[in-house]
Amino acid sequence: MSADAIQPIRFLLSDMDGTLLLPDHSLSQRTIEAVRALREAGVFFSLATGRPPRAMLQQIEALGVDVPTAGFNGGTLVNPDGSILVAHHLPAEAALITLALLCEQPEVEVWVFAEGDWLLRDPTGPMVPREQQGLGYAPVVVESFEPVLGRIDKIVAASANAQLLIDLEAQLQPKVAGLAQVSRSQPVYLDITAMQANKGDALKTLAAHLGVALEQTAAIGDGGNDPAMFQVAGLSIAMGQAEEAVKRQADVVTGSNLEDGAAQAIERFILHSQ
Rank of each mutant, 00 (worst) to 15 (best):
L96H: 05
V108S: 09
I84M: 01
A95N: 01
S83P: 10
L120R: 12
L120S: 02
L90M: 09
D122H: 10
V78R: 11
C103A: 11
A94D: 07
N79W: 09
E109R: 02
A95P: 04
H89P: 00
Q105A: 13
G82E: 10
Q105E: 15
G116P: 02
W118I: 03
L120E: 05
D122C: 06
A87S: 13
W111Q: 14
V108K: 10
L96Y: 00
A114I: 04
P80W: 12
L101Q: 12
H89E: 12
V86C: 04
N79S: 02
G116T: 03
G82S: 10
V110G: 04
A95Q: 07
L77T: 04
C103Q: 14
W111F: 11
D117M: 09
W111K: 03
C103M: 15
L120V: 05
Q105V: 11
V86R: 12
E93L: 14
W118K: 05
A94K: 00
D117C: 03
V108N: 07
H89S: 10
E93M: 09
I84A: 11
A100F: 11
G82N: 06
A114G: 05
G82R: 11
E107Y: 08
V110Q: 08
A92W: 01
G116N: 01
L90F: 07
F113G: 01
L85S: 04
H88Y: 13
E93I: 14
L101M: 14
L102V: 12
L120K: 06
L101E: 14
R121A: 09
L99Q: 06
H89C: 03
A100M: 09
R121D: 01
A92C: 03
V110K: 03
D81K: 08
V110R: 01
I97W: 07
L120W: 08
L77R: 02
D81R: 04
I84N: 02
F113R: 00
L101R: 15
E109M: 11
E107M: 13
T98I: 08
V108Y: 03
E107W: 08
A94R: 01
A100C: 08
T98M: 10
G82P: 08
D81S: 04
G116E: 03
L85M: 15
P80C: 05
L90I: 12
A100W: 09
V108L: 10
T98W: 11
G116R: 05
L85E: 06
L85I: 02
L99A: 09
F113C: 03
A95Y: 03
L85D: 02
P80V: 08
A87R: 14
Q105N: 11
S83I: 06
V108P: 04
E109C: 05
L99P: 02
W118F: 12
I97P: 00
A100S: 15
A114P: 00
V112A: 01
D81P: 01
Q105G: 08
G116V: 07
E115I: 01
V110N: 01
S83E: 08
P91K: 12
L96P: 00
N79C: 11
H88L: 07
L99H: 05
W111A: 14
E109V: 11
E93G: 03
V86Q: 14
D81Q: 04
L90P: 02
E107L: 15
R121N: 04
A94V: 06
E109G: 13
P91D: 11
L85W: 09
C103T: 15
L102S: 06
E109Y: 10
P106I: 14
R121G: 00
H88E: 13
L102R: 00
